[in-house]
Design a protein around this nucleic acid. Structure first.
Length: 238
DNA sequence: TCATTAAATTGTT
DNA sequence: AACAATTTAATGA
């Protein structure tokens, strides 16, 4: 039933599925939405594919429709540092797009993903004309600031269980990643990569969180049961 | 559509 | 790091 409906939608509009996964489209007035749709490009990314690279001039403002991306940077010593994962519904690069600078990080697909891109010129046009779009971007910047501060706390924490919990809470952020919903599709391997822990240790932490009743571990993903608990959970040393 | 096989992911040591 | 067990995805009749 659900598939028939989407197939029907797809017949009318080949991009219907993808467009449903772009949160800010609903905030635009019809004329603005039309302009946005003219510019929007949706592409598939294979694991390891680069969405953007450090130093390249900004071409698009990017968003994740499906899958999982990672944001990373290379230090002068050539060490790759992963900052964060970007799950569905996440849009990034406003700062760079605003100033029309070069990308300051690499964005790579961790798994097969669907990525949407809004050309910088269209991005600026929407900023100049759409109040709804401005609200979205402002809200986005504000929420990301909060997450940035939280990320610094996470880095200082030594307890792996807490690190996993807080990092998960960040990925489940409904404002930044409205496409995630109740279930985050991520493997324990991928999560370990993002958090900086071994898969075994992540598996152990997830088991503890599940025992605590804050999440449920599923094949290929995690279901959040208590987001507030995830954000503030505390574990005892063994 | 169903059964079989391959691949991916997880749980454990 | 390695292994077995489990789940999903892919294949082809």
């Amino acid at each position: 039933m659900a598939t028939e409906l989407t197939l029907h939608e797809r017949r009318r509009d080949p991009n219907a599925l993808e467009l449903a996964g772009i949160p800010w489209l609903a905030l635009l007035l019809p004329a603005e939405r039309e302009r946005a749709l003219d510019g929007l490009r949706v592409t598939d990314a294979r694991p390891g594919d680069y969405v953007c690279r450090i130093g390249r001039p900004v071409t698009y403002w990017f968003g994740v429709v499906a899958g999982l991306l990672k944001m990373s940077t290379d230090s002068a010593q050539g060490v790759t540092m992963t900052f964060t994962g970007v799950p569905p519904g996440g849009w990034f690069g406003e700062g760079t797009a605003l100033k029309r600078e070069d990308y300051r990080y690499n964005i790579q697909a961790l798994r097969k993903s669907v990525v949407a891109g809004l050309p910088v010129d269209t991005f600026h046009w929407l900023l100049d004309h759409s109040i709804g779009f401005n609200r979205f971007v402002m809200n986005q910047l504000n929420e990301r600031l909060g997450q940035f501060i939280a990320a610094r706390e996470i880095d200082r924490m030594n307890n792996p269980d807490v690190r996993v919990a807080r990092s998960l809470a960040a990925l489940f952020n409904p404002v930044l990643y409205p496409g995630v919903g109740e279930v985050l599709r991520i493997t324990q391997q991928e999560l370990g990569y993002l958090v900086g822990l071994s898969r075994q240790r992540v598996n152990e932490a997830l088991a503890a969180l599940e025992a605590q009743g804050t999440i449920r571990v599923e094949y290929g993903g995690l279901r959040v049961l208590d987001l507030a608990a995830l954000r503030s959970s505390i574990f005892h040393e063994k």
